[in-house]
Computed example of a mutant assay.
Amino acid sequence: MLLSEHKELKLEIKSLPEKEKDKLLLRLIAKDKVLTEHLHFKLLEDEQDLVNRQEQLMQLIDAGIAELQAARKPNSKETLLRMRKLNGSINHHFKVTRDLNSEMELRVHLLTHIPIEFNESIFSSLYKFNEKLNVYFVKTTVLLLNKYHKMHEDLQFDLKGSLNMLLNKIYKHKTAEAARSLHLPEDL
Score class of each variant (00 low, 15 high):
132 K>S: 09
99 D>M: 05
103 E>W: 13
108 V>P: 11
96 V>I: 13
131 E>P: 01
95 K>E: 03
106 L>G: 08
139 K>I: 00
122 I>M: 13
130 N>A: 12
118 F>S: 02
122 I>W: 15
98 R>T: 07
142 V>C: 08
106 L>D: 00
146 N>G: 09
95 K>I: 03
122 I>D: 08
123 F>Q: 12
124 S>P: 07
130 N>K: 15
106 L>N: 02
111 L>R: 07
107 R>Y: 03
140 T>V: 11
107 R>K: 14
99 D>A: 11
141 T>E: 07
141 T>R: 11
131 E>R: 07
116 I>Q: 08
101 N>H: 12
127 Y>L: 09
103 E>H: 08
103 E>M: 10
147 K>A: 12
107 R>P: 00
137 F>E: 02
138 V>R: 03
131 E>L: 14
122 I>T: 10
128 K>E: 14
139 K>S: 03
125 S>K: 15
122 I>K: 15
133 L>V: 00
118 F>V: 02
139 K>N: 08
115 P>D: 09
111 L>C: 02
105 E>T: 03
142 V>G: 06
117 E>P: 09
136 Y>W: 07
142 V>P: 04
96 V>G: 02
101 N>K: 13
138 V>S: 03
145 L>V: 01
102 S>E: 10
102 S>G: 04
145 L>S: 01
122 I>V: 11
93 H>W: 03
93 H>E: 05
146 N>V: 08
109 H>S: 11
136 Y>V: 10
106 L>Q: 02
119 N>C: 10
